[in-house]
Design a protein around this nucleic acid. Structure first.
Lengths: 190, 190
DNA sequence: ATTTTCAGTAAACGTATGTTCACTGATGTT
DNA sequence: AACATCAGTGAACATACGTTTACTGAAAAT
């Protein structure tokens, strides 16, 4: 699994990887692959699941840190930025397979994303923010938030590394987008 | 080019296509490929450009139709929905290569998207909507709008076909998302 | 102490791949 | 009428591919 992620980090979609190069990268003979997965699709699904676990850990980290009520957005985004750096390979994978590639893999990624969105809804409810919103509207708002997160993650991954100015700009842009979404949610009338 | 798009419509990323199957689908011998492109990358870039032209035609269509001031959102979304159906292959391509695959192709898609966003900014200015917003904020708002458009397009493409109920639901969901974004923009204070 | 489990191996298979080359035949230009 | 252009051909190449098979050896279970 790590070998496949590493290869994707070099700029190809999962569907463009071959079994033989994955095993070569893993330092193992091609036949060994079949000791672990029935075929490449199964590898893909395993990677989606692993990525889903990573996403849930992100939410847990944000909860655990405890958000200062002022500048909640900014501190969440900081945690998010650190998290992307620490799990770069998983975000590369999700960003790539979220939109493209095989329909089955894409659907699996979308399921993880929906799960994430729903946990976010519960968290926002628990925090007592946006108390006036219907469930449907809260779901929609979180959908926009999660989409924006994923797209921003992909943008951060594409930034040249070690350019603090660009990274600060990324943080500010992301915070502004989230602020606009939440402003819209607060102004929402059913 | 049409052959490559057709193959991608069957659920694989551009990077997972082989020259030989593209030419086979085009009804031509492999060597013929080199009469038109130096390599597969060039084909990819040509497809990005073609898709960009399609996107610009979308804006032109929306302008030409002329929007009723009430329910502008709803009618734009209707045009958009029809447009996706009429140019399904291009949207499949852009959705797939926007996030994944080769960095060069992704960058090219992002450039087309930025171009589109900027044209949208100009259109909104011309229409005199949101007069209170700074250029920066208007750009950001349009960025959110365009991202939401692209993601919604991908979702529509994944819907089972000939299910009018699901499609109506898609329209409503998309309209609500846009409405929330514009509500946020109206409430924005620098 | 013996047996079972299991990750890894080596070799082989038929097939698909990207690229090249000299050649063909129609269309358009001089 | 002679010529140039150019999309398409067919054959050939070395390489890479997915998958199967029987075999190995260490660790775990009995």
């Amino acid at each position: 699994m790590a070998a496949a992620l590493a290869l994707m980090g070099e700029g190809r979609g999962f569907g463009a990887l071959s079994l033989r190069e994955i095993t070569a990268r893993a330092g193992v003979v091609p036949a060994t692959f079949y000791r672990h997965f029935a075929n490449l699709d199964e590898l893909g699904f395993a990677l989606v699941e692993e990525s889903g676990i990573t996403l849930r850990r992100l939410l847990r980290d944000v909860r655990r840190t405890g958000l200062p009520p002022t500048s909640m957005l900014a501190s969440s985004v900081k945690i998010f930025r650190q998290f992307i750096e620490d799990h770069r390979a998983h975000f590369v994978f999700v960003s790539a397979e979220r939109g493209g590639g095989s329909p089955a893999l894409r659907a699996a990624v979308r399921r993880e994303e929906a799960h994430f969105r729903h946990e976010l809804v519960l968290d926002l409810r628990q925090l007592g923010l946006m108390p006036g919103l219907s469930s449907q509207t809260l779901e929609m708002t979180c959908g926009l938030v999660v989409s924006t997160m994923m797209l921003s993650a992909a943008e951060l991954l594409d930034l040249p590394s070690n350019q603090p100015a660009l990274e600060r700009e990324w943080v500010e842009s992301f915070v502004r987008q989230l602020r606009l979404i939440f402003l819209g949610a607060r102004a929402w009338r059913e």
